[in-house]
Design a protein around this nucleic acid. Structure first.
Lengths: 313, 313
DNA sequence: TTGAAAGCGCTACCAA
DNA sequence: TTGGTAGCGCTTTCAA
């Protein structure tokens, strides 16, 4: 593979001039430019990306930390990021985490090693303190509300929509409610908002046994519900964390021939529409679009809410 | 940021020895190792990833070309790739293409520029000839059946399942069939297999008007079907390219209060299960797992089929 | 407008 | 076991 020295030698100019041509800089004579370009195409020269990055000091890589890809929160944010990246010179590097703190730390180290220019945490197992510590090595954006100024933030503003849902349910006369969550209250701000909003609207704390965590997929939901149904538990209303999840709940009741409770979904997915379930629409893709902008831009910014809406059905 | 020279100076050893410690090489005294490691932690030193890559001559980046992320074929393959990559030292770089040949060429150039070590095409707009030409710069794997030995290949073997589907439909007495496709016959091997298998089983060529292309999402399907229903077209059976797509078809008929035709889905998605539609299960995730292995390994290999199965309902 | 040479930060060969 | 130094391939400053 030809390198810049070969081009210099064969064209009769210096590497400095060749470099100028490569980068389209001024102060190169027409003659030199033509000779060099001719030589480059003749030798099928392409500049080595790594070497350029080393010289420039940046990588044009944006890392995206994903715990998994089983929930639209993550896949939709990723889609937004990808869509936004396509017309830029930046590339998206996937950093799968499984919420593993060691892995997340490894990725933060990559920021320090300048293997990536910026990092987007769609979610994080590691503490915000630790994230903040690494912000000196590159931009860090987080898809949750955080008030630390070192961390850029764009997040779904769920509370308004949740207030609507719970008020709607209360008005309907719903007394008992099961809540399906992906992660526990102490680990997830989403879980916190959900429960806190319930508490606010209903003016009571949900029973521990009525909060079911560890539910991510349709199958998780179906299995968890079947178990409880078979144990004789009764259900009036189920507030789930996704339409696909809600469908799993629906299937569990259908299969065990129990009376169908009122099921609420989220994400406005196809499954929820087919079953006619009320749902909450979150604009995750927009969060991705915005997260990319924040990762690339240099200005600090306020946490940016992206508003969710309730879709009754 | 401290570099290897700083460590050398402060620890009293040379950069060569520091490098040996970084890479865990032999022939370093306990004393030297301790002194150097102490200095590294004291100065918060981390080796620069770009510089190492430049020296080593590889990047540990695998590029994955995705036309879009609206169909499980792409998202599931990507999931498989990610799952497989997580325990390796390789990273996944997303290369969105929209089937745009210029973009795809740009990505192949990155292979030449050594910005990525290997590239996986989940699908391609560019010709196999061109792909083959670039194979000298890095491993190229393609998620479709190709007989060129320069290109590694792992693909869904659909024909067997399609024979089953069409035979099943024929036995049921289905005479007329509409076929929904993502891309046209000449551009997509999937479309070719679909139509060729229909032809084989039914011993007749499908009517041009009964082949509907450009259908990728649920919404595409719903809109296309509504248009045709409103134009007075009649439907006996619809073979679609996905359960979510099939659901769009279902919704169109439901909305326009027409008699529901027999609808066949694919991908075994939640939506198809909820509607009780027959479907074809493709093991896309496995294709992703395997594609990653091929991209990382150095041995050439035969095209590898991953068998699809028909799920009647 | 051009070129020499000093970076960028690290690896690995060859001597010692 | 160590160190000197020539790479890896490119950019950029400083002189000319």
């Amino acid at each position: 593979m030809a390198n810049i020295y070969d081009i210099a030698k064969q064209s009769g100019y210096s590497v400095a001039t060749v470099s100028r041509v490569i980068n389209g800089h001024k102060h190169v004579s027409k003659k030199a430019q033509q000779a060099i370009e001719e030589t480059m195409t003749r030798l099928e020269f392409v500049p080595n990306a790594m070497a350029r990055n080393l010289s420039f000091g940046n990588t044009y890589n944006i890392g995206v930390v994903l715990p998994h890809t089983k929930h639209p929160f993550f896949t939709e944010i990723l889609n937004g990021i990808i869509e936004r990246a396509i017309s830029t010179s930046y590339q998206i590097v996937i950093l799968p985490s499984k919420y593993d703190e060691d892995l997340e730390l490894k990725y933060l180290e990559q920021l320090r090693q300048k293997a990536i220019d910026a990092i987007i945490f769609t979610s994080h197992g590691i503490s915000l303190e630790t994230l903040a510590e690494y912000s000196e090595y590159g931009r860090i954006v987080c898809c949750e509300k955080t008030n630390r100024k070192e961390i850029l933030s764009v997040y779904p503003e769920r509370e308004g929509a949740y207030v609507e849902v719970f008020s709607w349910l209360k008005e309907k006369g719903i007394k008992q409610m099961h809540i399906l969550l992906s992660r526990s209250y102490d680990k997830s701000t989403t879980s916190q908002v959900t429960i806190d909003t319930f508490r606010k609207v209903y003016a009571e704390t949900p029973h521990k046994e009525e909060i079911i965590t560890g539910i991510i997929s349709n199958v998780d939901a179906k299995e968890a519900m079947l178990k409880r149904i078979n144990a004789g538990e009764k259900f009036e209303c189920i507030f789930s964390n996704g339409d696909d999840v809600a469908s799993g709940v629906y299937e569990a009741f259908l299969e065990s021939e129990q009376e169908m409770p009122l099921i609420i979904g989220q994400e406005n997915q196809i499954s929820g529409r087919l079953l006619g379930l009320p749902t909450v629409e979150h604009r995750f893709k927009e969060i991705g679009l915005r997260a990319f902008d924040l990762a690339v831009m240099n200005q600090p910014s306020q946490p940016e809410p992206i508003i969710s809406t309730f879709i009754p059905r």
